[in-house]
Write a protein that binds this DNA or RNA. Structure first.
Lengths: 208, 208
DNA sequence: GTCCAATGTTGACAGAAGAAACTTAATCCT
DNA sequence: AGGATTAAGTTTCTTCTGTCAACATTGGAC
């Protein structure tokens, strides 16, 4: 009759932590980050306003956990895209993620969660970057400069995502192209060249 | 004896609006954006907590005004840098600005001020971008693709700034290079090529 | 000089973060 | 099984913030 197992509104929720993260995720999908307040979160999870404090030291820690989730999602999306569409796919997946989950992305990179205070977050964030970095390094094996290149690639993709989701790119620049096509075109504009030697189109798949 | 002109604490401040923006600017230089609350702002400006409402509809409008200021600053820095050091200089100036005024930059791009609700802000922001876009377009006169290139250039520089100021670039990647040198190196990694024709190193000065 | 509109002030109120003290229910220990 | 321990939730309280409404002051227009 009820949801699935008859959960009768017990005193102990059972798994509040993940429940909180779940409803928080829903809020992030439908509302602005500002709407994600501890109290409304508690309310919508059907629990008292102080309950979340048993699972998160404070609001910032909650946000950090959500950001960490975000990096995991992003990493996964990138790995899948890389498998299917190579380096180009990774870049596009990055932008797609930002546009599909704008508030989550904001949370991850908006500076509201000072990364220095949350080592676990830094950890997972770094790992997500390593995927991109590794893929590019494998693709452009230059020893010197490869590191810089991968950072440039990340910056490019990241910046594009940010500008798009903030609505900074004026409509006339995109023309009638789809967002995906536009992304692809913009990225295709760029080549990398360590020192001044080899160049690799950012849009090229590893072996095509 | 007192500050300079004997300002006697008159009932009417005289020029509260700019005074508010000034102290807000100071706060942004020394503290986190979160510390910029209407009440502390009023307090530090030596005025009652409701006074700011005579000059800004709400907190968001205040932030919008500060962001607009920021775009003006950024635009100026870029123009100056362009005059002195060409396209490379503009990119570097962009990153430098972000690193010198991290909280201001966050305010400008962090999504806390929904640009759609503040047409004046969008206006000045667009103008700042046009400087970059125009300079690049003049430099790479390709008709088709020039627009995309300038967006890629902006994205690159913007993303790099963002990643650096969030501390996302791990120290080992930078090595012992100064931040400016590192920025320059990373940017130098990239070339642009519209369609698949001409390429222009992003770091090159207009005529060298 | 008078009057008034702009600018400031005081004093509310609601909503949020967080701490403290208390309750309930799992689970561990014999 | 049966009590002690303790993790997980609840209530209550304090402080801070944004915002509004009602009142005060004053610089200028006339």
């Amino acid at each position: 009759m009820s949801t699935s197992k008859h959960r009768k509104r017990r005193y102990h929720h059972g798994d509040l932590r993940v429940a909180l993260l779940r409803t928080a995720g829903k809020i992030l999908e439908k509302e602005r980050l500002e709407a994600l307040t501890l109290r409304t979160l508690a309310r919508r999870t059907g629990v008292s306003h102080a309950a979340p404090y048993r699972h998160f030291r404070d609001r910032e820690s909650l946000l950090a956990a959500l950001a960490a989730e975000g990096f995991a999602m992003l990493g996964k999306a990138q790995r899948e895209a890389a498998a299917a569409a190579g380096l180009r796919g990774m870049g596009e997946a990055y932008v797609r993620f930002a546009l599909e989950q704008p508030q989550r992305f904001r949370l991850m990179f908006g500076g509201e969660v000072p990364i220095g205070r949350h080592p676990a977050l830094r950890e997972v964030a770094t790992r997500a970057f390593d995927a991109l970095s590794g893929a590019l390094a494998a693709h452009v094996p230059e020893a010197r400069g490869a590191r810089d290149q991968s950072i440039a690639a990340w910056a490019l993709v990241h910046g594009l995502a940010q500008l798009l989701l903030e609505g900074r790119v004026d409509a006339s620049a995109r023309g009638d192209r789809s967002e995906a096509q536009f992304t692809s075109d913009v990225l295709a504009t760029v080549r990398f060249a360590a020192g001044s030697a080899s160049r690799a189109p950012v849009g090229a798949a590893p072996s095509a």
